[in-house]
Design a protein around this nucleic acid. Structure first.
Lengths: 292, 292
DNA sequence: CCATTTATCTGACTTTAGTCTGATAAAATT
DNA sequence: AATTTTATCAGACTAAAGTCAGATAAATGG
């Protein structure tokens, strides 16, 4: 065989196609066509809006309607009209539907567990999977405002701190840095954003405020896997929007010489280098931007 | 989202399912149902035996027959009866069939290329893909006898030498080691085996002979991704079979202290440590095994 | 040589997926 | 208030996938 990139990609593609096919087969074992199973799964995942289900699964409206009807006849879901819009419909699992949904979930979970536990180095495998999934989702990264103490925020921050510790010559200990209070990064004082790639945090940024029109951008991080797609720029634009919404007119931030790509990002996006404005031991450079 | 192993696996699974689905969609663009396209692809890949195609694609005999007929009607394949067994049939691409097969190949290649060239670090991506594909194929590794100068053999040997260079304290330079002549690892003097995981070399082993009943096992290597599945043991058993087939009765080998897992493998599989029998600078341990 | 097995094929049939048209009713627009 | 748009649904239809029961002919095993 050739071992050029395309052959290697295609070998990967064959392997996962087989794996995906095997899972579909196991889904059929529950005596329901795949189409109906997919709709049930979409609803179980919390997609209740019928139009949403339709676009998510790429279904024709007639087909979607029939699949919903078949699930309803089985007693797995209930539909009712949307409270705000009488044309739209909402689907919800019944108790038996929940049970059946869980059965599908278990099939998926078991397939995952079987694969991972069969391997001597599951951590390496998972890192490879994250890398690939992030690459495949790279044009569908969603930025969401979350509480800085939420699981997703903490996950991002931990990876951020770990990376600083690796990259700073002097290491990094968050307790020595001026770690903002969580309450300063929650509206109405500030905000905290995470970038999610199909649920996995691949970036974050915080906005620390004190009630005045001056804000400070903190904790900008983009996961290594997700770099090169302009996510840093998107996060900065999003946090500036948050600042504007909080009536701020000036933002500041600091950064370290071990993070040249951050320095470049600020330079390219309207930030001006200014004098040191704090006595945090880590930063080497200080920036300001006036919002318009 | 949860970031436990199973959620991460399932996120990966969602991403590749989408990707695979998109490729299938592009296949449909050639105006042929997926089933027929799959059969055409199987034949193009060299699966000519109808029974083989059927089991490979998991098709009912009736369905397979009809799909073959439709491809034949399109003038893409020709079938004839097997020369050794009048019941079996052989399918072969016609010239137009070859063209059409290449068109599908191009669609796949383009999808691969689009994905890889869209990413800032395709090498990391490919390594991750190799890791995952090897893990998914781990129970389907084929051992084949090849010429030690073939591409697959050289690929394995290069990775083997690179690993020795990493692991030996003193480094490794193959020109300083007693590198066997390729002709000593080809029947009737010797043999060379590679382990292929869906085409990718993930292991190798050589048998160097001089026409006598004494042989030497050389270049045993198992790719890091493929370890932990007993492949080393399988390769050793296979090379012993080769030795027996060449009427050898005694095998020798040497190994280095930086490769403890190899030492353990030999100890567990009937090899006896003996005195140094060559003046190669690298090995620290010497083994012998009498074949029964 | 004869019974059995094996590989393939054919035709009838069912299920699943997907498309298209028109109906209905609610919302949005004029 | 009338018209248009939107979301859903139902029914008719087609295409594709899959199943099943023989039919056929070649190989195999006594």
């Amino acid at each position: 065989m050739e071992n050029d990139p395309i052959s290697r990609y295609r070998r990967f593609s064959r392997a996962v196609t087989r794996q995906v096919g095997a899972l579909d087969q196991s889904f059929l074992g529950r005596g329901r066509p795949l189409g109906a199973a997919r709709v049930l799964n979409a609803i179980g995942q919390g997609r209740c809006d019928v139009a949403d289900i339709r676009t998510y699964l790429g279904l024709d409206s007639g087909l979607a309607s029939r699949l919903l009807r078949s699930l309803e006849d089985e007693g797995l879901i209930e539909t009712r009209t949307h409270p705000d819009d009488g044309r739209r419909r909402i689907a919800k699992l019944t108790a038996t539907g929940r049970t059946e949904f869980n059965a599908y979930e278990n099939l998926s979970d078991e397939a995952a567990d079987r694969f991972l536990s069969d391997h001597p180095a599951p951590d390496a495998l998972l890192e490879a999977m994250d890398l690939i999934a992030t690459a495949m989702n790279r044009h569908a990264v969603a930025i969401e405002r979350v509480d800085p103490t939420s699981g997703d925020a903490r996950y991002g921050l931990e990876r951020y701190y770990a990376e600083l510790a690796r990259r700073f010559e002097e290491g990094f200990d968050v307790s020595l840095s001026c770690d903002p209070e969580a309450s300063d990064m929650v509206p109405p004082r500030g905000a905290f954003l995470v970038a999610l790639s199909d649920g996995l945090p691949v970036g974050c940024v915080g906005l620390k405020g004190n009630g005045s029109t001056l804000g400070e951008v903190k904790r900008l991080w983009v996961a290594p896997d997700a770099r090169g797609a302009g996510l840093g720029k998107r996060l900065m634009a999003a946090i500036e929007d948050e600042a504007r919404a909080l009536s701020m007119d000036t933002l500041r931030l600091d950064t370290n010489r071990a993070l040249p790509e951050a320095y470049e990002l600020y330079m390219r996006n309207g930030w001006t280098e200014i004098e040191r404005f704090n006595d945090d031991p880590y930063p080497d450079f200080f920036f300001e931007k006036r919002l318009v």
